[in-house]
């Protein structure tokens, strides 16, 4: 009985800040404003399924995918090395990777702006070496770079945690049974780290696919990801109904992808999200 009362504030929180807003978004998405009144209509979804929106959605998914792959390729070895015996006591290294997370996300992204821009750090360096200038800012590359930079810790942390928890005697058992370093990794370490990978992939992919700040700052005003499309409907265009419909579409897409992931990772920790 007591725990039920204790959970009450959280239930209220969930209701006020999660359930009601989602209900409102769904409600808005299914209505259009006519003479100041909201009436039921599929029009928003019809518009959300037009090529310009689908293209932005596809682009978002593609860039988020690229970002997730890069984060995995960079993050997995880092997590593995930092969890290994030689580095286990050196929390400092992990600390270094996490320090940027303490700073404001916007500030960090703005700083890339000054590094990548035409007269920024990189081009000054290239000029100094008499090399041709590089146009990085306002391209896909800059957006992916910004995403990877911001979301890499979310890949490293869960993998690192799983690696740390891994019983070293299991690895020794594999060696004992004749497995060399490569086999130990492929047959034991990697399969056991999959829950961390699933968490990391989810935690990187989801914010990447929905980001609009990174694409706006590093991709430029014309750079349209699905997040930017939604943002524009809620700000400039003031069409909340269309914005809601696109949001719901994106939400369904994300939930489906997590569901697929959860099925793949039957008993892993990524499933905790569901």
């Amino acid at each position: 009985m007591k725990t039920r009362y204790l959970s009450l504030p959280y239930l209220i929180w969930a209701l006020v800040f999660i359930i009601i807003p989602i209900g409102l978004v769904v409600y808005y998405s299914l209505t259009v404003e006519v003479d100041g009144k909201l009436i039921f209509s599929w029009a928003n979804y019809k518009q959300a399924l037009t090529p310009s929106y689908l293209l932005a959605l596809w682009r978002s998914i593609w860039l988020a995918f690229v970002c997730t792959v890069i984060c995995f390729a960079l993050g997995y070895p880092i997590a593995y090395i930092m969890a290994s015996r030689e580095y286990a006591s050196k929390g400092f290294l992990l600390f270094l990777f996490l320090v940027p997370m303490w700073m404001n996300f916007l500030l960090r992204t703005y700083s890339w702006l000054s590094i990548l821009e035409r007269n920024g750090f990189i081009n000054s360096l290239l000029r100094l070496l008499s090399l041709p200038e590089a146009r990085i800012l306002y391209t896909d590359k800059a957006v992916v770079l910004g995403m990877v930079y911001n979301f890499l810790p979310f890949m490293i942390l869960p993998i690192h945690t799983v690696m740390k928890k891994m019983d070293s005697s299991i690895i020794e058992a594999a060696q004992d049974l004749g497995a060399n370093g490569r086999t130990v990794f492929l047959r034991v370490v990697f399969p056991l780290s999959i829950p961390g990978v699933v968490s990391g992939v989810t935690m990187v992919f989801m914010p990447s696919v929905t980001t609009f700040i990174i694409s706006k700052l590093l991709g430029g005003a014309q750079f349209m990801l699905i997040g930017n499309m939604i943002e524009r409907q809620f700000t400039e265009s003031r069409n909340w109904n269309l914005g809601s419909a696109v949001s719901v579409m994106l939400m369904v897409l994300i939930l489906t992808s997590i569901a697929i992931f959860t099925v793949v990772d039957k008993d892993g920790e990524g499933g905790a999200l569901f």
Partner: peptide, 27 residues
């Protein structure tokens, strides 16, 4: 270790949790 003709039974068993009984033995 993997080249030595000895095998170990570890204190905490150290079975591979991602494999079933047969897969553990077959490793």
């Amino acid at each position: 270790p993997y080249k030595r003709q000895v095998n170990t039974v570890f204190q905490k068993y150290a079975l591979f949790p991602n494999m079933n009984v047969a897969e553990n033995i077959a490793f």
